[in-house]
Design a protein around this nucleic acid. Structure first.
Ligand SMILES: [Mn+2]
Ligand SMILES: [Mn+2]
Ligand SMILES: [Zn+2]
Ligand SMILES: [Zn+2]
Lengths: 148, 148
DNA sequence: GGCTGATTGCAACATTGTTGCATCTAGCTT
DNA sequence: AAGCTAGATGCAACAATGTTGCAATCAGCC
């Protein structure tokens, strides 16, 4: 929800500006991760103009507040769809349609921490992006196989 | 070992060229992930010259053969230090000194697969980079705290 | 020692990301 | 409601990273 993000910004003393609202809106509506320049193009289609530097700075801010994430395997940004209390946020990326699903699981984090601790490391943060097929794309591919 | 990588190249019918050997050598000696341009600089110091396009193409090849990996959280390449049979390869990244340790663990993969399967996804590949402090950097930081 | 397809170099270009500074404005103060 | 000001945006210039097509070269074969 857009309002939730706006409250976070206000609570941290950040101003609610047109550019910030516009980037939020684009991320809300997106079906897949968007690069800063993707976001600029989206807005241009709606007759809005934002300088790309502004978009970079807004995305930096959003990421620092956990309102957005950069999906590194894609190089694009998504809005965060989880609360902030649930530990580290993980992604499932469909390499067919590009769809993203965010999730969190403490057991996975604990497993990684335990394993790395045995190697002498002190883990603070987990980056995890599982790639494969979403339910829709899997079904489509399955039915194509039946036909072909 | 450099010889192992060379055998992989030969086995797949790729030529053993000076540029490929040089990139292999740099990756072998590196203590942290290197970007293509980092590799070019390293070589320039040794009096060698490689065009950056060549380095990009060599790294693409190495990654496709699992001789190297791109560490996305850093944007640099490391040589693969594991065999190819052990499933997906994971990284621990020290955010202090940049050191990398590669590892593999089937249980972690299975845990991720199980969790994403419940969300309807069919996972094929895991990207996992845990960041924190390596043993050395942790010890240093610990001793600084005692003093300060 | 030549042949040839694979590899590299080069030039030109595209994309992505960064910095410093001038200008503007959201939200506060009066 | 108008003014003030720190914070936000725009702009210009630049830096870094990555890509493409094609000509020149060379590794591994005969
Ligand atoms: Mn999140
Ligand atoms: Mn590996
Ligand atoms: Zn899909
Ligand atoms: Zn370290």
């Amino acid at each position: 929800m857009l309002q939730a993000a706006i409250r976070v910004l206000q609570a941290q003393g950040y101003k609610i500006t047109e550019p910030r609202k516009q980037v939020l809106e684009v991320l809300e509506g997106a079906q897949k991760p968007l690069s800063p320049y993707d976001i600029q193009s989206f807005l241009k289609q709606k007759g809005k103009y934002l300088n790309h530097v502004t978009i970079y700075r807004i995305l930096d801010l959003f990421c620092s507040l956990n309102l957005a994430h950069k999906v590194l395997s894609i190089g694009g940004f998504v809005k965060c769809s989880l609360g902030t209390a649930e530990g580290c946020h993980r992604f499932m990326v469909c390499h067919q349609c590009g769809a993203i699903q965010e999730f969190a699981d403490k057991e996975l984090c604990q497993g990684e921490d335990a394993f790395t601790r045995n190697l002498g490391f002190h883990t603070k943060y987990h980056l995890s992006e599982s790639s494969g097929l979403c339910a829709d794309c899997f079904r489509k591919q399955f039915e194509e196989q039946k036909l072909g």
